[in-house]
Structure formats: C-alpha cells, structure tokens
Design a protein around this nucleic acid. Sequence first.
RNA 1: GCGGACAUAGUGUAGUGGUUAGCACGCAAGCUUCCCAAGCUUGCUACCCGGGUUCGAAUCCCGGUGUCCGCACCA
Length: 543
Amino acid sequence: MQTEEIVSLFKRRGVLWPSAEIYGGSAGLFDYGPVGIALKRRLEDAWARWFVGLSPNYYLIDPADIVPEAVVRASGHLDHFSDADVACGKCGHHARADTLLEERGLKDVEGLTPEALGRLLREENPPCPRCGERALTVPRPFNLMFGLDFGVTGKERAYLRPETAQGAYLSFARMWDVGRKQLPLGIAVIGKAYRNEIAPRNVLFRMRAFTQAEVQIFFDPDDFQVPLQAVEHEQLPCLRATDRAMGAREPTLVSAKDLVEKGGLPDFYVYHMVHYLRFFRDVLRYPVERIRFLEKNEKERAFYNRIHFDLEVKLDSLGDFKELGAVHYRGDYDLTRHGAGSKTDLSVTTTAGKKVLPHVLELTFGVDRNLWALADLHLRVETPAAAAPSPTPTPTPAPAPATAPASSPPPGEGDLKEEKGPRTYWALPAYLAPTQVAVLPLVRKLHASLAEGIAETLRDAGLSVVVPLTASVGKRYAREDEVGTPYAVTIDGETLENGSVTLRERDSRAQRRVEVKALPGELFPRVQAPRPGRGPPWSTPPA
RNA sequence: GCGGACAUAGUGUAGUGGUUAGCACGCAAGCUUCCCAAGCUUGCUACCCGGGUUCGAAUCCCGGUGUCCGCACCA
C-alpha cells in the first residue's frame, strides 16, 4: 500500500489527520480520530499483554511526561541531544556551526559545546554560505527537546521527555519496593515522547509528539535466568554488524541457540529477541520475510548501548526497511547516571544477599510507526478479477453445533452479485480491529430495532459493536471492510422467525448462519490478543 | 535546517487574468421487502493564510504555513 492511499483512507475514515488542520497544520503533529485511537489503544493493549506478560515481575506504570532539568542533565540529553545553530546577521540564513567548520577542513568538531564552537567560529570567521557576508551570529544551542518554563517564577527549567525510558529509571527505586525486591524487574511505559525534529517527515515516522511503548528490564548481570531452551530452535533473521562490515545486505536465519553459542550474544538478550520476533510475526502478523534484526555497529549505536539490534520491517509505502522497535542492552549507564545525578544509591541487595547495580535491557516499540505498518502491510486492494478465483468452492468452515441446521442455505459466496470495482479491506487481526462486529439490518425498516437489540447483547459480552443503518448492505460491508471490522452480523427475515443470523468474515467474505445466542461465545475468544507462552489461541480459524 | 516541486469540496482532480469554479467518487435525506460500493429523486461541501500588482487574481509577484522528493539530522 502506498503512502498517498493510506493517508487518504486515514483522513476519510477518521483514523488520523494533521493537527491544527484549519490553521494550515503544524508539522510533525497528528490528531487521531475515533477509528485511529481505537486501533492505537488495541495495539497498545496487545503490546502490554505480550511484553508485560513475559514475567509476573514486569509492571506497567505511567510516569509524568515532563521532567525537571536535572533529569535530562543526568541522562545526557541536555548535552548530547543538541546542535549549535548559527544565523547570518546579514541575510538570516541558518546553518549548523559544526557543519560550517567541517566544511573549512576542521576535524573533531563533533560533540563540542556551543561555546567551543563559537570560539572556533570567531577564529575562522567563515562567510555565510548564501550571501557570502562574514556576519555569523554566536552559536545558539538548538536542542531537540522542548524546553518549558516551569513554575510561577519561570526560573525552573523542565522539558517534555524526549523518551519514555527516563520515567522508568526514575521510578526504579520506588518500583524495587513495589515489586517486592526481585530481579529481574521490568518497568513498562506506554506514553508520549516529544522531540523538536528538524524535518518531520513521512507522516507517522518522524513526529514531534509520538507514542513509545517500552519495557526497561533491570537485572543482575551475573544472574539473569531465562528459559532459552524453550525457544532455542526459533529462527531469527539477523544482519550482524560484522557481516555488514563485509558487505552483507541480506539477513541470514540463525537459530536462537546458535546466536548464543556461536554468535556470542548473551542468552537473556536472544531470549528477548525471540519474543520480539514472535510479537511482530504472530501477534501483529507482519510477514516474516519482511522482518529483520539489524545489528548496529559501534559507530551507529549510542555509546552506552553494549548490544543494539533494531527490529526492522520492510514497508512498501516507504520503500525500505524501517525501524519499528529495538532491543538495547544499556548496561548500568542509566542507573549510574541517575544515581550520581540524584545522589541516591540505586544499587539493590538481591535475595542472595548480593549488592548489585542492575543492568538494563530495553525493549522499545514505536506505537505510531507500527500503526502505520499495520496499514502498509494489512490494507489489501482486490480487483474483481483477482478476487474471482477464490469465491466459488470455498466451503464454509465446519459448522459448529450452534449453526441453525434447518434454515435455508445462507447466501454463500456463489450467490454474490458481480462486483463493481476494487475492494479495499484492512486485514487486521481481529483483536486489533477498531470495531469488532458490525450488526447490519438487511432492510432498515424491518430489522433495525432487532439489530439494535442484538448489538446491545454483544456489547454486554464485551465486544465493540456498531450498527450501520444507511446505504445498501453491500456498501455497509465495504465501509466496514475498509476500517478492518472483522465480523459482520446481518439481520434478515429469518432472524425474526428463528433467531438465526448471517455471520460474515471480512477477509474471505465467507458467510454462515449462526444462532444469535451463540454469537458471544463464538466471537469473544477471537478478539482476545495473544499472550506469550500460551500456545497459539490466535490461530483459531476464522469464523 | 538547506535545495527543488507542489497546495482547488470529505477524497481524487479540471480549470494560464473576467467561469453561476467543472467532473468523479463520497456524504446526507427520500423511494426501493431480503446479502456485497445497484438504481432513481433531492441536497451538501472547495480555490492554504497574509500582503502586493491589476478595473478585475484560483490564475501573476512577495512573505508565511503545510506536503512531497533529495541532502543533512535521527545522543
């Protein structure tokens, strides 16, 4: 699916749109609509169910998204998250101080403070790249964080958090008690992070306010037991840094066991890679051939990351593999820094009586980006010609006892009228769909009130239900297909007689008759997101 | 931030100085008694913002904002 098609559908159907649209928009900010926020919350819930579910000692918390300056000073964001911007006093042209100096042949200017860059600029006095005037201003630190005047006096500085992870580190000491003093301790956060990006681009891929879902796993580096043998045969598509250095472009499949025994990665790290892969492949159902773990080399990764694999997925809309998540082994960097910054001893005493400063394994996940990926990978357009082969012989799955046996045969695929044009449907897993069931009265006047009653019953059972009333039934099916509603229940004359309805499945459009009273039991299990280690309940065949 | 291109109903578009700003899809109301965007009737909605040139600007010029593409950036 291409970017323009996705954006157009997103706007049309109420998924999301540019923020402050009536004022011309504001780059890098988006508003989620009713369909979008429903999907986003389901995605977040599925993520939490999976990753927080990895251990009973992993917890979801919701820390503040404003942090005092001391926090970002300790974390390093204040120093490392900024560039020095200079403007031409004559023509107003903006440029980066380090770039100007590098262009004049100076080396090792990266990482210098704005003051140091200012001194060098005075010595060099380079001309403005646009007008040639030697009238550059003093470098002004441009930080990628949004700074805030905090408190009444305006003298306190605070920042919108540039990543959610900091909240987990700040809460570690408290959570050590709450979590009953056990390692490993996982602290998960789902929330907004804010970056004043220079060039927001690609809709949900570089935003100025975006949602991250992360687990920070605190563990004893000498003792992090994981049941690797349970997953050791899982094959991971990996592109290692060493192989990349030798020109490799394609990932190779390596078993979890080999990654540990021959690849030199710690077992706890590989164990979490496996669960990451399973989440993308089995829960989000991204095609496995589009997934790869890309290892960042020493130069590419942040200096505190000891091991860094991005989980990348190939997206047609953006034409390449894009980072949708990552696994970072951050060592003891964060607790060391915040321990020093806050003058607090963040080391803990384990049950074995050992004093240890925990290390951190970070599993990070971009919620908005994955919402985009769900559109890119699961939105399908079927032209009538392409759709034609499938319909005829598709027998409806084995009828459950609930199926009304004596009723007239349901209008099966063979009875479909000729299709009018391409059909767009969003093949989301049922547990991610914004709306789970559409209850459609076949003829509004005759069946609407009955449809409302059935919808209420299904809502009572915990399902998210809509009752579209306008337009022909075919058009209503099409609208629901486009926003990914997995099941449609159609109310017709027979429903009035014997309480049976037609249950239609989105992707195959297969239909079968079901007793109304069997619907909750039939549908509810299918809209539950999977949990790790529970087998594959999600592989239940479609209704 | 830099360079280039672009900006017209909800969506996609036509419109090169004077148009009631056109078309398609869509959406809404009504008719239609039974399963995949059907048909008929009626209706709805637009020139990104600000300034300038001109008798007259969607159209030309300037500035802003936004989008896309490349570069840069993404501790």
